[in-house]
Design a protein around this nucleic acid. Structure first.
Lengths: 243, 243
DNA sequence: ATTACTATTCTACGAGTAT
DNA sequence: TATACTCGTAGAATAGTAA
């Protein structure tokens, strides 16, 4: 191993970052139990065997939980001979708040869906479709802006792909299909959305498309210019759902 | 061991009850993660290695989590050769909803505090104090009822004792102290409360009392008669907090 | 690619106990 | 009584791999 290594570098920065967040599920459970006993507001008096009963585990394990939570700085204690007083710290409260936020997202009828995708060079057909008068008219009235004639393709990767199902399970705006001289144009789903740095935008998906990993973004302006996007770049869209 | 034992008894009913609720913290975590991916609303496509990444564990462990959740009936799957579709069942949603309820209680400014205690035969001094005109006048005006001349003592046991601290940390009604011919009477904290089967009641605690395990209940009527209480009986009180 | 088995490593539980 | 240590062991996690 070269002697230089690890000199200027902080000792495993990734590991430090982990230590902050990494708290085993069992310990979070213990922390939650302590909080339910009121230790976010005041010192509480709990013996390790009482906590063990509440967590359906042994006194020894409960004691280890308490020690571990203390070492992580999530609780503070005053240990006497006959009793210990426990109080959850700000850091501990933060962990619980984070959990709460997760569950809140699940049940409080999420009105926003955050989607991350990779900017993809489209095949140009987007422009052809999105400039058909039959579509443009509806975009203007239903989305509230006149779209730039062209779409930005966003490819979803990994588990992000599931959000397409989620989108379709919400109530999308329906852009009706129509027929011109040459052919028919199918129905399109649309959702109002938000992009950091752009005024307004919308996410659209042909109704009949299944199993795609790609969604298209419409905006009043050319998003590639406005946001200085290049292919392969990651982009976050916030879709507004009406449940 | 007697041959009779365990014959008529159902096979460990307590264990059956446990199996319903008992779900290891790590599995609840996995379930939550699946839910965050949208599997409460639709089928989602997650490989075990993707879930492993999200949970910061191995593909094998994630696979085991999925199998275990399925065996518990918390998720349903369609497993193909190249992909699996996962959806959370009603039972799974119930587990998550339960967790959510816990966290909600922690953060949504709990306006009620459930306290369980054991009915205790008092020493009779409650009656002496609670019939002093200086107190009675304030009870009537601040609690909204004329109290029966006597209190019901409730002894809190184990971790329930901590709720006394919690009570004091909220904003109690303050019954002011006073002086009569003979002596001085100290300040008393009071909280409006509810008892199943009784119209109105209040929980009171002398302000200066520390380290007590006993709280006293006031009501317009004799609670022992109204609720047919006997010493040693457990009783639940719901205290109304104003945070 | 997947899922999920078997074998092996190793973490973490709880009995016993010191303080 | 408490807390919290050591330590043997059960079971969980991962490596390797089959299907």
């Amino acid at each position: 191993m070269p002697a230089l290594e690890g000199q200027a570098k902080p000792v495993s920065p990734a590991r430090d970052a982990l230590l902050e967040t990494e708290c085993p599920a069992d310990e979070v459970l213990a922390l939650k139990q302590l909080a339910l006993l009121g230790s976010m507001q005041t010192n509480i008096e709990v013996s390790s065997s009482e906590l063990g009963d509440l967590l359906e585990t042994s006194q020894q394990t409960a004691s280890r939980r308490i020690l571990s939570l203390e070492h992580r700085g999530l609780i503070e204690r005053e240990v006497g001979v006959r009793k210990q007083l426990i109080r959850i710290t700000e850091a501990g409260t933060e962990i619980l708040r984070k959990e709460y936020a997760d569950y809140k997202r699940l049940f409080e009828m999420a009105t926003e869906l955050h989607i991350r995708g990779v900017v993809q060079s489209g095949l140009g057909e987007g422009t052809y479709y999105m400039t058909r008068a039959g579509y443009v008219r509806q975009f203007e009235s239903k989305l509230g802006f006149k779209p730039y004639p062209g779409t930005l393709n966003l490819e979803l990767q990994g588990t992000e792909v599931n959000k397409i199902r989620l989108l379709k399970a919400s109530s999308p705006l329906l852009i009706e299909g129509f027929r011109d001289e040459a052919r028919t144009f199918g129905e399109v789903f649309a959702w109002k959305a938000r992009l950091d740095g752009a005024s307004a935008c919308a996410l659209i998906l042909p109704k009949r498309t299944h199993y795609t990993r790609v969604v298209e973004l419409l905006a009043p302006e050319r998003l590639r210019d406005r946001l200085r996007l290049v292919d392969g770049q990651e982009l976050d869209v916030v879709v507004t759902l009406q449940p």
